[in-house]
């Protein structure tokens, strides 16, 4: 299993870079740098998605997470502020306490989670594989993710477009398009 070994090291490298970028986002106060690093973070996670066999998620994350989100945040940053104030000391400790407690609780839950890559874990064994078996006969589309998204869970996707429509409407109302107050590039999400 030489292949497996190599991708494993790629995963470790990507995880290390994700952690480095995450900590850099915490430390930096220049909002431009923070926003650009968020784009980098999205792109790195997209790379990890490819290695985790989630190619559809990867290109959506690369296009929407690293592309559109970054553009939206850059636009908002240009309209608001370039620097963030440093966090107060009291707030720093409060945040650290909350994070430590939540993180400890999550670590405590790790042994209950399915083993990484286990094909027989409850998460992987039932309904997902059922979709794999049924799709060729019922839908006839080779890409199972597309089949589930557009057919089995079509109403879900329809609801998603309603959410996007509502969000676009909310953004337009908040920023007052068409009332001659200000023109922005905020409403064009996919």
């Amino acid at each position: 299993m030489m292949d497996n070994d190599l991708t494993q090291y790629l995963d470790y490298a990507l995880i290390a870079m994700l952690l480095a970028v995450g900590f850099a986002i915490v430390r930096l106060r220049n909002l431009f740098a923070v926003v650009m690093l968020t784009g980098v973070y999205s792109l790195l996670s997209a790379a990890w998605f490819v290695s985790l066999d989630a190619v559809d998620v990867a290109f959506t994350e690369a296009a929407v997470g690293a592309g559109i989100s970054t553009v939206l945040m850059l636009g908002a940053m240009l309209l608001t502020a370039r620097e963030s104030e440093p966090a107060g000391q009291k707030r720093h400790w409060a945040a650290l306490a909350v994070v430590a407690a939540a993180g400890a609780a999550l670590f405590f839950a790790i042994p209950d989670m399915p083993v990484y890559g286990d094909p027989n874990s409850p998460a992987n064994a039932y309904v997902g594989m059922d979709y794999m078996d049924r799709t060729p006969n019922e839908i006839g589309v080779p890409n199972v993710v597309t089949a589930v998204l557009a057919s089995y869970r079509g109403y879900d996707t329809f609801g998603e477009t309603v959410v996007i429509f509502t969000a676009a409407l909310g953004v337009m109302l908040l920023l007052g398009f068409g009332t001659g107050r200000r023109e922005d590039e905020e409403e064009d999400e996919a």
Binding site: A54, D56, V57, T60, E61, V64, G65, I68, S69, L72, M73, G75, A76, A123, N124, V127, G128, M129, Y131, M132, V144, V145, V148, L149, R153, D156, T157, E160, V163, I164, T166, A167, A168, G170, V171, L174, L175, E186, E187, E189, A190
Partner: peptide
């Protein structure tokens, strides 16, 4: 497993919608 992929695809798009409203 394709099912998490489908759920997360939806979540990514909904996430950017909420982000847009938050930034507005």
């Amino acid at each position: 497993n394709p099912l998490p992929h489908v759920l997360i695809l939806t979540a990514i798009v909904v996430g950017v919608a909420t982000l847009a409203v938050g930034l507005a």
